[in-house]
Nucleic acid binder design. Sequence first.
DNA 1: AGTGAAACGGAACTGACTTTCCACTTCCAA
DNA 2: TTGGAAGTGGAAAGTCAGTTCCGTTTCACT
Lengths: 221, 221
Amino acid sequence: MISEIGATDEAARPLRADAARNRALILETAAEVFAEHGLDAGYDEIARRAGIGVGTVYRRFPERSELVRALFETRVEEIVAIAEEAESNEDAWAGLAYFLEKALERQVVDRGLKEVMASTIQDGEHLSIGRERLGPIIEGMVARAQAAGAMRSDVESTDLGVQLMLMSSISTPAQPDLWRRYLALFLDGLRARPDLSPLPLLAPADEAMHALMCNLRGREI
Amino acid sequence: MISEIGATDEAARPLRADAARNRALILETAAEVFAEHGLDAGYDEIARRAGIGVGTVYRRFPERSELVRALFETRVEEIVAIAEEAESNEDAWAGLAYFLEKALERQVVDRGLKEVMASTIQDGEHLSIGRERLGPIIEGMVARAQAAGAMRSDVESTDLGVQLMLMSSISTPAQPDLWRRYLALFLDGLRARPDLSPLPLLAPADEAMHALMCNLRGREI
DNA sequence: AGTGAAACGGAACTGACTTTCCACTTCCAA
DNA sequence: TTGGAAGTGGAAAGTCAGTTCCGTTTCACT
């Protein structure tokens, strides 16, 4: 309740001009670094690229999770928004395909986002956003696509989650879009067909899916 | 060309009895440790579990790659043998499914093996085994399965390699066999169908597939 | 302009791992 | 049985990334 300049978001005391400038610089640089190296990237790499001291980064974001939250909250929201947009498509199958494509477009090029999406539940106290909201939306679309006879009836929404995370690693410098090939293949396998035998085993439960996602990129919690 | 006891494999000078005993113990223990933690597991963990000193492990296997080779050469051969067995199946589609299943059964429970299979080319000078021999066999089966009209004609053998590596990460403590579900789904997507649109993009080249596999589990080279 | 609080940079510290080294033990051949 | 080469265990040294600390600089307010 004090002044106007440099007050970035949560606390009440405004930052000094140089501090605010550096904070913005850190966010900008960290976005790049996390995209390349994931959420475990060293603060010193961020500092080096930003041309500031490590101490400055630590002072502004003593907890890594604060930095992660500041960077990825809106990115996760964006993906939720994509899901909501997809949901509004009358053709649920098309909606699902759209969601998978747009989500992958984002996750493939940003390793940090991929890791955040793989957590997005009780990650400390942060980012308990994504999956809780995404889950029900995907579930609804899956149910509608199955009811419409477009999607085989023995898949569940967690199956899509698992495959989404797997496909988000499929990219090489030579063929950055390679994931599109496997998305197409996956979607073909998802279609309802008269002659399919039912899938073996149960679809993973939500927590199982989460555990799996964490495994996929070494990250704990 | 000297004696008989304790001569383990390559060099000519035999090991002393206690050294030979420890070497066997190291191999036995390292197999476990690598299966759990992958090829980068610390020598100290191996030593601790074997109840010997770290120095002993370093003296016997100064280069990690020697240890890896000693442990995994036969395991890789085993997988090549599975491929050859699969190849002998008149029904190429069934052969491919058999190969994927048996290879996954082995890779899923052994993180070390998974990593070795992801390299198996110019890994130092070692283990230049697997893919060079596996590649042509899979290619042949794919071609035959396509000629027989069982498999869609727009997939290639490298597509199978990519998916094999991805699926080998799908396992949770609660559902260790979960990969079987996604293998079934993948195979369904692989079947020839009159109504499929062709897959987008080119299948990855051999080196692209290799680069991808390395990415998948942080391991370089 | 002057002053004190805030912020800065980067050297120093920390702790986890990896590797080497060496005083002591074990084996084996004479 | 004994001499000495081979082998052993684990402490010490070396690495390396992550974090803290503090002398110096910058800012904002008077």
